[in-house]
Design a protein around this nucleic acid. Structure first.
Lengths: 248, 248
DNA sequence: AAATTGAAGATTGTCAGCAATCCGGGATGT
DNA sequence: ACATCCCGGATTGCTGACAATCTTCAATTT
């Protein structure tokens, strides 16, 4: 266990007090626990010990409990009466449910984004796809992930519905709680980036329906790759259909 | 301000202690505040006074703060540092964003439900629509609302994706925070129930696409009725501004 | 009259402590 | 050997208290 960054709460009163004028301790702790979870410093199923955190951060347990309640509501922690908070464990069924919702919301985001896309954002998205392609070619797996993250963030935030972006982002964090999410291999990354390009193409054509479909397909592709990586086949072609009604 | 119900926490140790073996105080407080908001005992913008609640419920402020943090994350309360919690205020833009997401998730629920609908649930839904029609005819506005609630709950929970139902339910609660949501008039209720029947019809035909569409249309219908009731016309057929902020 | 200041009261932010509960391991009994 | 009981340590649940901050409002100044 490595000492976390914001542990400088000792005697530098001036700085700390200035800081707490705009940030409550609970929110600091919330982000710290979030960071620990996303970095696998805390892994699914583990208990969140209030005393340990309090000692480590040099604060009392009150703000920690408040932060944990927020994270409980966010779905990252799970509460058991008289036993405390635990990092939530996600089983495969819950993961599939999340993918189902993500596919649906992605489709919405694609449709919305296609209708209000600025030339600047489009250039940004295109550049990100190109850079991801480069990263794959250069075997730069570490370079790929932040780009991928930025790409999806730009997509969701560009849709102009902040609530949609927030819900989606929350579910993304939740998916980190699924233990068996293996890193994707080169061919899978290429497949993924091909889907990215399909999204950008649809967007640049200002085709809302097609953009929505491309984004949905990308999520379903991600689900397929996840299931394949854990040795299951994706017989859930559930939400794919998107049958066109050809009646005029 | 009327004294709330669960104020019997005085000296009946036996009962209270038994109760707290399975429920934490924070969760009790959370539901109490939620009740106060949904019943308009607390209305949007109002501060949530910790001392007042603590005195009223005969507990200390700790569990209250924990409950408020959960409700903050749920979007029902808003936190201002050093000023406390306030019942969140929703402006029209945020309401429209919520409707946009709700429409999308409803469509998904309709599609899912059509694929796994049991005969029993279908009977239940049909019966609810019939009873709502009766309630409208009998001018029983008070009878209508609980039926409507049960109808939508059955739809969302029948889809077999608990997370979907939870997200949807949370957004429903959030919509209560919009001040100007007038009660619907008789003709509007009839319109609404016509849409209900379209949903049930599509479900009984096991037509997933049509069921999804019917549910989406019902939400968009609700949005149209809301906008009409506050004197705006719904010029967004499917989305919000649809403004293209594009440079040449 | 309008704006500023300042102090009292109200409210939040945090903490330390105690009681209640849970967990693990060893002793006891069958 | 196996199950049960029990106890000590660890952890949570809640409380009361104190410091810091904000709000209010009347007195003062411009």
């Amino acid at each position: 266990m490595v000492m976390a960054a914001p542990n400088t709460a000792h005697k530098n009163h001036k700085k700390e007090l200035e800081f707490l004028r705009t940030q409550s301790l609970a929110s600091v702790v919330q982000h710290e626990i979030e960071r620990m979870i996303l970095s696998s410093e805390l892994s699914a199923g583990e208990p969140v010990n209030e005393n340990m955190l309090a000692t480590r951060l040099s604060i009392s347990r009150g703000p920690i409990r408040e932060a944990c309640r927020k994270l409980e509501q966010a779905g990252l922690l799970q509460f058991h009466v008289n036993r405390g908070m635990f990092v939530r464990e996600l089983d495969l069924e819950e993961v599939l449910h999340l993918y189902e919702i993500r596919a649906c919301l992605s489709e919405l985001a694609g449709k919305l984004l296609a209708k209000k896309l600025s030339a600047k954002t489009l250039r940004h998205l295109t550049e990100l796809v190109d850079r991801m392609a480069d990263a794959i070619k250069a075997n730069g797996l570490e370079a790929y992930y932040p780009l991928n993250l930025e790409f999806h963030k730009a997509l969701m935030e560009g849709a102009g519905n902040p609530r949609l972006a927030a819900i989606y982002s929350g579910m993304d964090k939740e998916l980190h709680l699924f233990r068996r999410h293996s890193l994707e291999s080169i061919p899978e990354l290429m497949e993924s980036n091909t889907e990215h390009r399909a999204i950008v193409d649809a967007l640049s054509a200002a085709n809302a329906e097609q953009a929505g479909l491309a984004m949905k397909q990308h999520i379903l592709g991600g689900r397929r790759r996840l299931l394949r990586s854990i040795g299951q086949t994706d017989h859930h072609e559930t939400t794919i259909p998107a049958q066109k009604k050809e009646e005029p």
